[in-house]
């Protein structure tokens, strides 16, 4: 009996400033394979379907359990984590492409720096202590903890930005990730002290005004973060903030 093969088509790019091209590989099938293990097979034996040995495919991965966000890529068109993309559930040939919203560095590796820059813009941290310790913070009720925890699971994977039709090279929008994190840090009793600064970012030109309610973000989020709820609640907060600013000014 001949060996069962999986056909994988990869969009490749040798460097950031190079033109992308396609290559196809056949990988021997094993039970319970995911896209990562298929890519590992290509790494082991980088031979194209036409028998030519090529440079092995570059991609990123870490945790292999959908908590790190490193292996985001477009699999058969849709963005998702490669580690949780099971071969048995994918239509072949399996088409792998890097995310298109981010600059490609090499093959399937993209630079997600814009998301970390966004976190700086929305002040995605809790300011604790100064030159001396300020003591224990206020207690947080368990239901508030549960609510906040959903947003704490964001792994900066970039899926929501990739799927959002309003995050692109001709739009100023920071995207759902940054907005949800602004709402997350504003829900913390100490984080709240910087709420106005975060809301300034939310009503800035790169902020929530560009949300068009396509709601793709909440559909593709691997962590099932209630992004659209965060956006709607943030809309309410931002409206009040803007109105107060106008009336005070």
């Amino acid at each position: 009996m001949t060996e069962k093969l999986i056909r994988i088509k990869v969009k490749r790019q040798d460097a950031a400033d190079q033109v992308p091209y396609w290559e196809e590989f056949d990988v021997p099938y094993r039970k319970n394979m995911n896209v990562i293990s298929a890519l590992m097979e290509i790494q082991r034996n980088p031979v194209r379907v036409d028998g030519v040995r090529v440079r092995s495919v570059f991609w990123e991965y870490n945790c292999l359990e959908e908590v790190c966000g490193a292996c985001s890529m477009r699999i058969n068109g849709k963005v998702r984590q490669a580690c949780s993309a099971l071969i048995d559930r994918l239509q072949q040939p399996i088409v792998l492409e890097p995310m298109s919203t981010f600059p490609v560095e090499k093959d399937l590796i993209v630079n997600r720096q814009i998301m970390f820059d966004s976190l700086k813009k929305i002040k995605g941290w809790i300011a604790i202590d100064g030159t001396y310790p300020l003591g224990a913070g206020p207690r947080i009720a368990p239901d508030e903890q549960q609510e906040a925890y959903k947003y704490a699971t964001c792994m900066t994977c970039g899926c929501c930005l990739e799927a959002c039709p309003n995050v692109n090279d001709h739009s100023p929008y920071l995207g759902p990730q940054a907005m949800a994190q602004a709402k997350y840090f504003n829900s913390h009793p100490i984080g709240k002290m910087m709420a106005k600064e975060r809301l300034e970012a939310v009503i800035s030109n790169a902020g929530i005004a560009s949300c068009g309610n396509s709601q793709n973000c909440v559909q593709v989020c691997p962590k099932e973060i209630p992004l659209t709820t965060a956006l709607a609640e943030l809309n309410r907060d931002a409206n009040r903030f803007m109105l107060r600013k106008l009336l005070k000014g």
């Binding site: 820059d117 930005l161 090279d169």
Partner: peptide, 8 residues
Amino acid sequence: MSSSKALP
């Protein structure tokens, strides 16, 4: 390389 393809 430029890391701000989408922004601002």
